[in-house]
Structures are given as C-alpha cells and as structure tokens.
Design a protein around this nucleic acid. Structure first.
Lengths: 339, 339
DNA sequence: GTGAAAGCGCTAACAT
DNA sequence: ATGTTAGCGCTTTCAC
C-alpha cells in the first residue's frame, strides 16, 4: 500500500501539484472553487502531506526537544513527569512541535550535544535531569539553538536557567524550624553531584549560622534522594543522637524515610521530631498528618522553560527566568508552627 | 549559518557524494583509506546527515509513537510515566525511534487517527489513557501500522491489547478480604468510562456472588480515581453503614482517601477497616503500615507494548500479549491476612 | 489563477 | 572502488 502523494491529489483534481501545494498552504492566488475541489479530493484520498517532504521543500517544522538525562522506570517524586507535561503543553499552546529525547552519562561522552541536536533537527532545547559531573552542561557553548536548563545553574551565556532559589528556600525551611523552638536540626540531603542538593545544603548551613548554632557534620546525612537510604541513615542518627529534634530533608521521599525511622524508634512526628521535606509530592498532604514541605511546581518549570525557548526562537530575548521559579513553604502536621 | 550537507563533505574530501553516502552507511565497496579520510572530514565539519533527507532518499527511520490521551500536569499514580519510560526504553533497546504524541477528547473528533499516524510518519503505535467513550479506539481498523492498546481491551482484529486480567485481580483481592473474615466489603471504583474500572467492578461483584454474599448497590461507590472524592464518599458511607468492615479500591490513591476518612471517624486501618488498593504506587508501602494492594507494573506494560509493536513491524506476529500482564496481591498492614 | 521547472539532502540503481 | 543519475514529496521562483 503506497503512500498517497501530492501527485495523486493533483491527478485526481485535474490540476498541477503546484496548485495543490498553494491551496494547502493557504496562498491567496488560488481560485476558491479550485480550492474547494482540492479539499474534497484531499479528504477522499486521505492525503496527508509528508513531513520529510515539506521539511526539504522549505517548511521545516519548528521543534523543541526535551532532553532528559537518565530516564528511570520510576519517578516517585513526579518531577520528570511534571516537567515533561509542562514542556509538552507549552509546545501545544505555542503551536510548535515537541520531541522527547533521552540520554545518559555514557551517551553524553559518545554523542556530542551538538550532533544530537542537529540529527534531530531541533529548533530549541530544554534539558532536565543533569548533574554537575555530566558533560552536556559543558557543551552548551557548542550549540546554536535556544536552550533552557532545568535545575542546574549553568551560568552559560545565552542559556536560560530555569531554577528556583534552592538555597534561600532551604534556609527559610530551617529557619522555620528554629523559630518554632527546634534547636538540633539535622539534614538529609541528596547526592553532591546534584546542583539543587548542593544549594539546599548551603541554605541549611546558612540558617544555622545565622542563628549562631553549630553546623555539625555528623548531623548532615547524604541519602541520594532515596527513601530507603534516608530511612537507614536517619535510624542510625536518631538512635545515637537523642538531641536531634528536627530534620530538614532535600526531598519528600527522603522525608518519608525519616518519618518511618522515627516512628520505629517510638517518636511522634511533629512533636518529638519535626520533619520538613521538599517538593510537595501529590501524596505529601496525606501522610503523617500532612508533610510540611517546600513546594515547587515542576509542571510550571517545564511550561516556563518551553515558553522561554520558544520566545528565544522567535527573537524575543527578554525572558530570562533565572532563579525565579516559585516555591512555598507548606506547613502541615509533620512540622507544625507558624511562619 | 547554513547547515553542512553531504555535498560539502564530498567537496572537502575530494570524492563524490555517493561515496560519502556509502561510507556513512557502511557499504562494503568503499576503500578503507577513503573511508577514514571521509570520517575525518565528517568530524571536522561536524556533519550530521539530515533526517528528512535520508527519509526521502529511501531510509525512513522506523518510529514508534506513544499516543497519550489527556496528558495532565500531574500523574499521581505514576502510571503514565511508567508506561512512557517503558515504551521509550523498548525503542532504545530495539534501536528504533520513539515519539511522544498527545491527544484529547476533542482532538480525536477533529483529527482522524489515521491522519495523525500518517502526518507523523509512524511505523508503529502504542496508545494509552483512552476511555471507552473516546473515538480513537473505534478508528483502529483504519490504520495500517502495528498498534498496541494499553488498558483497553479493544478486541479489534490485529491490535495488540496490553492488559492484565483486571476482573480476576479484583476478584482475588476481594476474596482475600472475605477469606480473612471480612463480610461487608464496599467498593470504591473509578469512572464507568474506564475499561479497567468496569472490569474491576465485575471482579468485586463476582467475588461476593461466589461467596453467596449480597451485592449492595449502596456499597458501590464511584470516585473517579480521585483521592478527594474517595475521601468524601467513604466518609459518608462509613458514617451511615457501620457494618462495612472492608473496602476494595480500584486505585491506591482512592485507598488513601478511604483510609483518611476512616481515621477521621476514629477507625483503625487494618483492624476496624481493611483497605485494599490497586497499582502499588511507590509510596504505598510506607503508608498506614503499608497499603495492601494489587501491584501492577506500568513500566513493564509500556516495555511489553513497545516490543510487541516492534515485533509486528518486523513481521513477527507471534506476540499477542492480551490480558497477560502480571499482577500480584501485595499484602501489607492496611488489610492483613494470609492468601 | 495556474503550471513548468529547479532544488532541498539524501539513497540506490546502474554504469564505469 | 568510485561516479552518474534518477527520484523521493514538497515548496518556490518565475513564466504564462
């Protein structure tokens, strides 16, 4: 079964392919009658212009690629999904094509970013899920299409960094704990290769320093954004350091692990131990009397990134959304108090 | 900045474009020396073959499209994400292209499925998120590429239905409750337009009938797979019908809502009220002493669908994974007992 | 208002 | 082992 081409339509409609092309691209110099006849034939033959053909002819569709690093089977925090749907909707709203691409640590060394963009024919790019030791962030200067990076402050010239002020958010969260009477606040952080983790760690530290409290290394745990690891680490910490009365976690998932550990040790969440998470995942409000957390809006980040890239594509360079994304401390039962 | 084409490479390497093409496509009849020289020029010029050009020339890349209906900003159950990453990885493993597409109720009536496939140049299709009243499932006979449907038993000839035996799974879950002493089991179901909801409802009914227990309409609630609605409905039910000692929910999210309602009414989950969910979302194991649930593996469903479609593309028609997907009753604290 | 012809970047017969 | 040429489906001058 061969594909029906513009020639088939032309033959059937009794005109030249040129006229078909013009009619389909809404050129003004086509007789309305002819146009209608053509439309009819198009319907009847179920003709659909070939994208490759158009592209070659001179109408390459604009496409924004969302490049996700290390796409995993599970996305417990929903961050990847949120960003994905955000970029996707932005492209829909702007009437521009969307393409999902993936890579990983190894592939980044094999295929240059520029080559990737070129081979996919991208007009714009949004990157997400990259760590500080990945190589694509360093290849940013090579590509010549508008590009946005999510959750990594690349600082690269011309690159749109879509991030929120993680340091300040973390600082506020810890300050909230201190203000509500906690004095021995521990930290459960993600891996050091995650830009956001580094910054949240800094915020934690700064909050303690501002309150003239000691920053104790033994109270700063790394749990790779993993519930299980957080649970394990927290259990050990809480068992040996009875003074700890609050924990700030760099993700809700890790906060869940901490809560689990605390309950196993007979502590009551929100009273004996205040726990703050990060992200505000959909189920956060239902757990442990509600998980106090720093909300961020992944969908909006994706949507913002997509729009910003599209703006750049269209020459509007005004949108520089660096560090501007919203966050909000949502106070619930796991760490009660007032702001 | 013009795109570097095969001609540029040819000129620079001092050979014809044919030789370039052959070298790049690993034809045997190219002098190894020449080939190396070409590789060099390719690197230097940063040449990347144009996808559209190849497509037209005669090497159209195979592409499987994942068509998702009604893509929302949030995916609390992680179902969409799991399927997405599954199909994506399947395509990677099989060395075939992957394309994410979206549609919605309105668009389905505007753009015929066939037209969509044609315009995107798809070689295969995986559909997810469709309801019984959507129109694409009915247009299946129109398309002439291999196609898999997830979570809808279309029954269409040639279509790969990737589903699990929802009816049997639900029946087993309810039977488990009965076996462990529960006698007044309520149902909290999703919307009637979801194929899986219909089947899970049937399983619930059948389990009761098999045990010669009455099937009471007032104990069958519809909560649209929504936590809030489930909470509301359950609260009302539990308040008026004190006999209810167990609830089977068609999703973990709704189960959470039910648990919340029960606790508000002073009931203890797992003792006063047994609650079973469906899906086994990542956080399920951490809630209410662990949520008893029917696990399903969305990632695997996506992966299976992708592979099955690829098999079909390659002429291997053996893979007919209808109703075969795994499920498993995971017993935890919210509905304790033995199988 | 319509059409003939060139050309987009590439592959594939078919020479040579 | 390499080059010539036709053609893929489309858009776009430029004549008519």
């Amino acid at each position: 079964m061969k594909r029906v081409s513009i020639h088939d339509v032309a033959r059937e409609a009794g005109v030249s392919i040129t006229t078909i092309s013009k009619a389909l691209n809404n050129y003004p110099d086509v007789n309305p009658q002819t146009k209608r006849r053509i439309q009819e034939v198009v319907e009847r033959l179920n003709y659909v212009p070939d994208a490759a053909g158009r592209s070659m002819g001179g109408i390459p569709e604009k496409v924004i690629g969302l490049l996700i690093n290390d796409l995993k089977p599970l996305d417990p925090s929903g961050a990847v999904y949120g960003i994905l749907s955000g970029v996707c909707h932005a492209c829909q709203d702007r009437g521009i094509g969307f393409m999902l691409l993936t890579t990983d640590f190894a592939a980044q060394r094999t295929v240059p970013l520029k080559k990737l963009c070129l081979s996919k024919g991208l007009t714009g790019l949004v990157c997400s899920g990259f760590r500080l030791d990945d190589s694509y962030p360093a290849q940013l200067r090579d590509i010549d299409i508008p590009c946005a990076f999510i959750d990594v402050e690349t600082g690269a010239p011309g690159v749109i960094d879509v991030t929120m002020d993680n340091e300040r958010a973390a600082q506020e969260a810890v300050a909230f704990l201190l203000k509500n009477g906690r004095r021995n606040v521990a930290l459960v952080n993600g891996m050091r290769t995650a830009d956001v983790a580094v910054r949240r760690g800094r915020g934690y530290r700064r909050a303690l320093e501002n309150a003239n409290l000691p920053v104790l290394p033994e109270r700063m745990l790394a749990a790779d954004f993993d519930e299980g690891l957080a649970h394990e680490q927290a259990r050990r910490l809480l068992a040996r350091d009875k003074a700890v009365d609050a924990v700030f976690c760099a993700s809700d998932l890790m906060a869940l692990g901490v809560c689990r550990a605390a309950e196993e040790l007979g502590m009551e969440i929100g009273r004996d131990l205040a726990v703050i998470g990060f992200d505000d995942i959909p189920v956060a409000r239902y757990l442990y009397g509600g998980l106090t957390t720093v909300r961020q809006d992944f969908y909006l980040m994706g949507y913002t990134a997509g729009c910003a890239v599209d703006d750049r594509i269209n020459g509007r360079a005004d949108s520089l959304v660096t560090g501007d994304m919203m966050y909000e401390l949502v106070v619930r039962g796991s760490a009660p108090g007032r702001l």
